[in-house]
Nucleic acid binder design. Structure first.
Length: 770
DNA sequence: TGTCTAATCCCGA
DNA sequence: TCGGGATTAGACA
């Protein structure tokens, strides 16, 4: 039988079905495509409705699809092979698509062998692929050519979007500046400014000058007190400013005239608003005016706190009792009250104490460490999983002789455990840094400012007893730390599930701070070493940096969605359709290129997994091949790790890029950025779907700030026994219009998503690792 | 009407 | 001759 003449079995069903549907064109189409021989069955279909025709077609052709793509099949039918051979350029186009399987294989080829470089197989590889996929070699060539063009246009489009955003921003800035120029406002009185009187620059200089004078004033007053020597930086004309008389003791301060300000907030008496001296400070706070006597009190508190910390750091038994396995130390409170001249008075009713001490080596030198601690931005960055928000309210002293020795600052921070069931801890504290007599040894101490008032129980849910560390330089850029954390907090704000964890000090204790510091410093050390390459070796150094930066932003965004801190404008939702321990928050996302615009819903919950160790749970969740057990993004198939950047010696600390199997040829294969971190105190797996072209840019060292993502993930904490506490958090764009109202359906959907995921994990992890 | 995709055309190395 | 950019044309939302 002549191929295609009568059987009709070799037709590509889509071609025919469409031809049938478009009955208006059918005759001309047939005239063009099948000039020589039109199969009878096809003509028969023309009398049917499109649907019927399609159904019949699938019945006829369905089982006989070989693996060749449609074009091959149609060509055998067209019958104009002779014409084509004579004049190949006039060959008519025949629509077809490669099969999903073919496309998936071709995509996989790009992903594994060439990503993120330009996918470019040579002739031999193309031949091999074409044989495997039953395609012509040139079809494979075309496919790769088109794919490259496509990626290029996607990247171009993405870059255009970025440029447009930047342009809009500049235009808005420009308009704002124009507006400000038209209506100038006096920065002193707030009234309309008289232009020409004084230039803006001069005015700024005068304000700056006044501020500097005041700071110098302050330093002079402090210098003699706690450094015991004058330094060149104080050699100014007003060095003889008399220091205010010191109160005799802190207890005396507590009952003094300053009692009565609301605890938990910076006392208004300490910081009366004096507009002339308020100026912006990095970190978002404002410099408030402290009187000399305020500063003296704070200094006295800092010195006393440092004494207490040193005692706590240096004394061993009987003050600290080591656990039987030697891993942790517990404070002997009886001994504590005997041997430590405690700053704090009685604990407020309902408050419980937690105290912990941990010793360890960290790959950082003491100078770099204290510099980090005295810079609030760097400190928050170092401990981004613990510090939800922080501001330096006032730098009381910058330190002497160009170092941080004697540096004292008033800070405010919100500390978190990654669970919606544990309230954020707000602390207002002093941070004081001092070099010890021994070379290369420093102490940094934090203490709540709540203690300089009589009754500290009104409002504040946590007060920091002297906490901090003693650090001593060791060889090879390592240092040895003794870390002490001591706090009193209102336990009623903590879910029953987490109370043992907090009491043990595993949540906010020295172990968690030190383990986090060790992990972060190791990561920084590895990143600065030249040997760090991703496993495939294809990502450039700048690409790695961009990827890590993006991953860090993702993880920070994840942490911000689990607990409600004041740093982010989340609105908590209450609804009967939300489970009892599930927290749902929402916010509008507008104008941040780092996330999609619209209504974002964040949902989080924590569940106990009593028989599963944190390590087992972590290994299960971070394994790409096991994601299909719980992740709806995996499309039910396994995921593959395409790129891997190690952040530490331990296998669990890494940033990786995962790829899911595509569902169909139309759906571009999706990428998932994943950051995993684990240390002695707990672990995290955070991930977000990312756009392929955007990721391509990042991996080539492009700016990651414009990659829009919404993170989801897990935080794993030990439950104090053998098991784990698992926090699951999702952030989902429920509507891409920021003004849209949130619907009950969206809330119910995320609610069922989270409970379903938890159930799947529970079921699967139980059998994992057996 | 715009986008996606397989294929074609054409140019330069 | 080959690869890449530009272009085309059918399908589809």
């Amino acid at each position: 039988m002549e191929p295609g003449v009568a059987s009709g079995l070799d037709f590509d069903s889509s071609v025919i079905a469409v031809a049938v549907e478009k009955s208006n064109f059918i005759l001309s189409l047939l005239g063009t495509l099948c000039t020589v021989s039109v199969p009878r069955r096809l003509l028969h279909f023309c009398d049917q409705t499109g649907t019927e025709a399609q159904m019949n077609l699938s019945r006829i052709t369905g089982d006989e699809n070989d693996c060749r793509s449609g074009s091959d099949n149609l060509e055998t039918v067209s019958g104009d092979d002779v014409d084509q051979e004579q004049n190949p350029r006039k060959k008519k186009k025949r629509y077809h698509r490669h099969t999903p399987q073919q496309i998936q294989e071709l995509e996989a080829y790009i992903t594994y062998r060439y990503f993120p470089d330009c996918p470019h197989p040579d002739e031999k590889q193309r031949l091999e692929l074409s044989k495997r996929l039953c395609l012509e070699s040139r079809q494979v060539k075309f496919w790769f050519q088109n794919r490259r063009t496509q990626m290029k246009t996607q990247i171009e489009r993405h870059e255009n979007a970025i440029l447009r955003q930047e342009n809009d921003k500049l235009r808005a800035d420009n308009m704002a500046i124009g507006e400000a120029t038209r209506n100038p406002v006096c920065s002193n009185c707030g009234g309309a400014a008289m232009l020409g009187d004084i230039s803006l620059e001069e005015q700024n200089l005068r304000i700056e000058n006044a501020r500097l004078k005041e700071e110098l004033d302050r330093l002079c007053a402090l210098a003699g007190k706690f450094l015991g020597r004058s330094t060149p930086c104080f050699a100014a004309d007003n060095i003889d400013v008399a220091p205010p008389p010191f109160p005799r003791s802190l207890l005396e301060l507590g009952v003094g005239s300053n009692g009565g300000f609301a605890a938990g907030l910076v006392p208004p008496e300490l910081f009366p608003p004096t507009p002339a001296t308020i100026s912006p400070l990095h970190g978002g706070g404002a410099v408030a005016h402290l009187t000399s006597s305020d500063r003296s009190m704070l200094l006295e508190l800092a010195l006393a706190a440092m004494d207490e910390l040193l005692t706590m750091a240096h004394m061993d038994a009987p003050l600290w009792i080591r656990s039987s396995d030697g891993s942790a130390e517990a404070l002997n409170y009886e001994q504590y009250h005997r041997s430590v001249s405690r700053i704090a008075g009685l604990s407020p009713a309902g408050f419980v104490a937690e105290a912990s001490r941990q010793t360890g080596m960290v790959i950082v030198n003491s100078l770099a460490l204290v510099e980090t601690f005295m810079d609030s931005d760097r400190w928050a960055n170092m401990f981004s999983s613990i510090v939800a928000k922080n501001t330096t309210v006032e730098v009381i002293c910058n330190g002497a002789g160009g170092t941080k020795n004697g540096a004292l600052q008033l800070m405010r921070a919100e500390l978190q455990v990654l669970s919606p069931l544990v309230a954020i801890r707000e602390v207002n504290f002093l941070r004081f840094c001092k070099q010890q007599a021994e070379e290369g040894t420093w102490v940094v101490v934090d203490v709540s400012v709540d203690f300089i008032r009589e009754n500290a129980s009104s409002g504040s849910s946590c007060r920091l007893m002297p906490s901090g560390f003693v650090v001593r330089d060791m060889p090879n850029d390592y240092s040895k730390l003794v870390w002490v954390e001591h706090a009193e907090y209102d336990e009623s704000q903590v879910h029953l599930l987490y109370r043992p964890l907090l009491r043990s000090g595993l949540a906010f204790g020295a172990g968690r701070w030190l383990a986090t510091l060790q992990r972060r410093c190791e990561c920084l050390a590895i990143l600065s070493s030249a040997s760090n390459l991703d496993e495939s070796g294809t990502i450039t150094a700048s690409g790695r940096r961009s990827m890590l930066k993006l991953a860090q932003r993702m993880t920070e965004a994840f942490c911000a969605g689990v607990c409600k801190s004041s740093a982010h404008e989340w609105t908590k939702l209450e609804s009967h359709s939300i489970g009892p321990d599930v927290h749902v928050m929402t916010r509008k996302s507008v104008g941040d290129p780092g996330e999609p615009a619209g209504v974002v819903l964040s949902t989080a919950t924590s569940v106990p997994l009593p028989l599963i160790s944190p390590k087992r749970l972590f290994d299960f969740l971070r394994e790409a091949g096991l994601r299909s057990k719980w992740d709806i993004l995996s499309n039910g198939g396994p995921m593959y790790e395409m790129a891997h950047i190690a952040k530490g010696q331990a296998a669990g600390n890494a940033v990786s890029l995962l790829r899911a199997s595509a569902v169909s040829s139309n759906q571009p294969s999706m990428l998932i950025l994943q950051e995993t971190c684990a240390d002695a105190s707990g672990a995290m797996v955070v991930y977000a779907p990312v756009d392929v072209p955007a990721m391509h840019l990042v991996m080539n060292g492009g700016d990651s700030a414009y990659v829009a993502l919404l993170p989801s993930g897990f935080a794993i904490l030990p439950d104090g026994g053998e098991g784990s506490l698992l926090t699951v958090g999702f952030q989902i764009l429920v509507n891409n219009q920021p003004t849209a109202k949130l619907t009950v359906e969206s809330v119910e959907t995320v609610n069922s998503l989270i409970s379903c995921t938890v159930q799947k994990i529970k079921a699967a992890v139980f059998h994992y690792g057996d």
